[in-house]
Design a protein around this nucleic acid. Structure first.
Lengths: 217, 217
DNA sequence: GAAACGATGTGAAATCTTTCACATCACAAG
DNA sequence: CTTGTGATGTGAAAGATTTCACATCGTTTC
């Protein structure tokens, strides 16, 4: 089964919802109910769950603990990944706090910044190093994934350094597109354009895409 | 012309790239070059630009200033929107700083938080109010868009309050899906699942989606 | 035990997005 | 003026994603 980025992202969100925000006393759930909570269609939920190799029982729905176990399985949740935050400005530090302890298998083990005042300190619970030490620390701590929060002007340069040091996956928050060599995984989150999208469709309802996620579904 | 969410997001990014990170002395650009910078195909760029009603000239490419003007036009960039950040924790405050002054037409005019210590102060350049004042301030300042950065447990409750107060668009960073009534626009950014996506495809190259954005393109 | 129910799993259709391929066009060169 | 060049604009194909529709099956009810 080939899992697309979209399916993969939804599976992660199903798991988060079921493990963190679902009544503990419930043991089963219907595709229909999960759909309502997620703001998706029931058939889409079922289609996604088909990737898991776990099957629900008609009339009973899906057993939540099994479902979570199978999602973990497919998402390889047992492997521990070391993650670095690169650029310890406001956004970088906020992400350290936000992401820490949210997924046990994704551990933020280092931060890097250009500012000498930030180096050699513990920021938001994460040891911070000067950018000059990227290559050394990335190799030493086996850091495979970087969260990039540096200014746009240096984003490409820092990316090249990270890749050279052995980083295999980058989550980019810098407001410019970056280039990576084959074999490195890139995910970009453009916060500005996300806000602009909301603004656009807010006063432009005519152009709005198909409505989803409405309360009275 | 019906502009999809995806096209809309890319147009915003083209504009950001051209206005903020492109040599000022260049007056024209080819679809091919913009594609290389964005990590997309040239035909996709041309297809997107077709939505603008502005046409490039063969052999010369697109005139940058005209292109930006037409993107502004389509994205309604002349309208000023008042935005509120709801939840002034680490992430909320970082977003205030990050997003402020990035787009002149999207102005963050207020922040809200439950914590009485944060109320009635100016945080990161934005006046902060207690959550009890949401309805009053949203109406008073004509706030149409909210950036939601509250803990998952209260996200739905706060959303309902925002909608009741007249907010028409929500950018949700809380780690749970939220429900909105018809007529309100919602965009969700799930930071945790974004990081998980990177992690997944990083040690799972076999499943990786079609490669894009590689340096040697 | 048989029938009804109400959920799942899934082939096929519909829809949305991207890419291909090439006609067309503006300019440059001869 | 004519031809060649190297871009654009776009119909149509290909590909990806979502939805539809219904066969199927485990449970409950009678």
């Amino acid at each position: 089964m080939n899992i697309s980025t979209k399916v993969m992202g939804r599976l992660a969100r199903y798991r988060a919802l079921l493990t963190d925000y679902f009544p503990k006393e419930k043991t089963h759930i219907f595709s229909h109910d999960l759909a309502a909570m997620m703001g998706l269609s029931a058939s889409q939920i079922r289609r996604d769950l088909m990737c898991l190799g776990y099957f629900g029982v008609p009339r009973y729905g899906y057993e939540i603990s099994e479902l979570v176990k199978h999602i973990n399985n497919v998402l390889d949740a047992s492997k521990l990944h070391h993650v670095a935050v690169v650029g310890a400005g406001n956004l970088g530090r906020a992400l350290m706090t936000f992401l820490e302890s949210r997924r046990a298998t994704l551990k933020i083990v280092a931060a890097f910044d250009d500012d000498p005042d930030k180096a050699n300190r513990v920021l938001n619970g994460v040891p911070c190093f000067h950018m000059d030490l990227v290559e050394e620390v990335v190799k030493r701590d086996d850091i495979r994934i970087a969260i990039l929060c540096v200014p746009g002007a240096v984003a490409q340069r820092v990316t090249d350094l990270l890749v050279k040091s052995g980083v295999k996956g980058i989550l980019n928050f810098a407001p410019v597109p970056i280039r990576i060599p084959v074999g490195v995984v890139l995910e970009e989150i453009d916060l500005t354009s996300a806000l602009e999208r909301v603004a656009f469709f807010t006063n432009n309802r005519a152009n709005a895409p198909k409505e989803k996620r409405h309360a009275d579904r």
